[in-house]
Amino acid sequence: MTIVDLTSMVEPQGELQDKINGMLDSMSEDISNFCFQCGKCTSGCEAFILLELEPHRIMALVKNGFIDELVNSDIIWTCMTCFKCKERCPQGMAPVNVLFALKNLAVAMGKQIPSGYTNMLQNVLGTGLIQAPKEVLNRKNETIDREKLNLPPIQRPEDPAKFQQIIMKAATETLR
């Protein structure tokens, strides 16, 4: 399931394409002006060794207009969001934010995204939490919940419908 399936029940996304184009324009301008391909981001990237994410290449690809290839690629979803690239870039750029934008774009364009992310979004929309507290069985086959562990209840939106209303709305539009 794509995010568009999740959100399309709210309202049609007429101006989405324009917004995406606007986002792309501002993104590519930043990159062409500043990134000089030193590769410092990639040298410290947490997802480089095991997942072959190369942030400097992402920057070059965006600069050269390979947006469609990127939003269709799995590689953008391997970013660990550790922010080391942003911290270390000598030009003050943030590949991590370019990756956030590319992921957002992929979602807005209705691309297939990793199920882990759709599940998270579904949970958050449904309960207001990334994961609702679960009951578990212990070794003695007893059901254990927070109350039995003397833990206070988890706070969550008191009116889930209201919560969904604003989040769904935001999820169908690209606010930034």
Partner: peptide, 9 residues
């Protein structure tokens, strides 16, 4: 958790 899918939300 939803920043990757939708920064606005």
């Amino acid at each position: 958790p939803v920043k990757s899918t939708d920064s606005g939300a």
